[in-house]
């Protein structure tokens, strides 16, 4: 497999700071992976995301060491607009992302910017709004939307660009649980159907773990563990990094089950009733 994202001994010190925000970060993500990044506030998660989409070093100054490669190209040498063709970024707070006069204008914004034909724009807006379940909100103004609807609008706008890599920074923190679960299920579908590589930062592991296959644990700017999610999620280092694991996983750990099941369905089917 070829790595679509590769961090090679990457360290970064923000301008004016003494300490590195992240130190000696190395990991790689392959095409079609869903990587779950877990770490407490201030652990360096945002810095890693910024180093992927090029905000670091193109918008944030500082001391940059090592290398970050996106689809084989060094982020350092690749302009932001070129990176943005590969990478879609969904922010934690949709207020930072949506601003047009209607949902449909907002979803179309990125497409218009990239010069798609009006027919293609119509099609993609219909597809993306449909995927996020906001088709009937298309004429509404963002201020009329609930926070959850705003986040879905923001995700639709990014999805419409059909990026190869989708980065989601706590995408569900403002959604109600069922919508959050459905949104993550949708991301999983997109991953399967389109081979879309996804990077998700999410505190609620009970929702995100079932859809991810890789996991990166970061604490104090350093990688504590990285690998197959099923292996990483049971590593005690996770507690030391301040992350809580879902009751389902805790229960299986207490029962001494090595190959943990990530959904209650598979746990009941394969462990309880076997």
């Amino acid at each position: 497999m070829t790595a679509v994202i590769e961090f090679k001994d990457f360290s970064f010190i923000y301008e004016g700071e003494k300490e590195a925000a992240v130190k000696h970060i190395s990991f790689s993500v392959e095409k079609g992976d869903i990587l779950l990044i877990a770490g407490i506030s201030g652990s360096g998660k945002s810095t890693i995301l910024r180093a992927m989409n090029g905000l670091i070093p193109h918008m944030y100054n500082g001391v940059y060491e090592g290398e970050v490669l996106i689809e084989g190209k060094s982020v350092l040498d690749t302009p932001m607009n070129e990176l943005s063709r590969s990478i879609g970024f969904v922010f934690q707070n949709p207020e930072n992302q949506i601003f047009a006069f209607s949902v449909e204008r907002d979803v179309a914004f990125g497409l218009e910017n990239q010069g798609f034909s009006s027919e293609e724009i119509r099609e993609r807006v219909a597809w993306a709004t449909g995927m996020l379940g906001i088709s009937d909100l298309r004429k509404m103004a963002p201020f009329e939307l609930s926070d959850g609807q705003k986040q879905r609008t923001a995700i639709a706008g990014v999805l419409a660009l059909k990026p190869n890599i989708l980065i989601l920074d706590e995408p569900t923190s403002l959604l109600d649980p069922l919508t959050a679960k459905e949104t993550l299920a949708l991301i999983s579908d997109l991953n399967k159907e389109l081979g879309l590589t996804c990077i998700i930062v999410e505190h609620r592991l009970e929702l995100a773990a079932p859809i991810a296959n890789k996991m990166l644990v970061i604490s104090k700017g350093e990688v504590r563990n990285f690998g197959r999610l099923k292996d990483v999620i049971v590593d005690p280092v996770i507690y030391l990094s301040g992350i809580s694991i879902p009751p389902l996983i805790e229960l299986q750990k207490a029962l001494g089950i090595d190959d943990v099941r990530l959904t209650i369905d598979s746990f009941i089917r394969e462990i309880v009733h076997r």
Binding site: D176, P177, P247, L251, A254, I268
Partner: peptide
Amino acid sequence: RSANLIMPQLAEISNRIGMAPAALDINQLL
């Protein structure tokens, strides 16, 4: 479902294994 909520994991596990009242922590399940 009507309130767009999902069952807490401990409630769902308890429910699926027929434990009532539902466990509030994993020790009660163990």
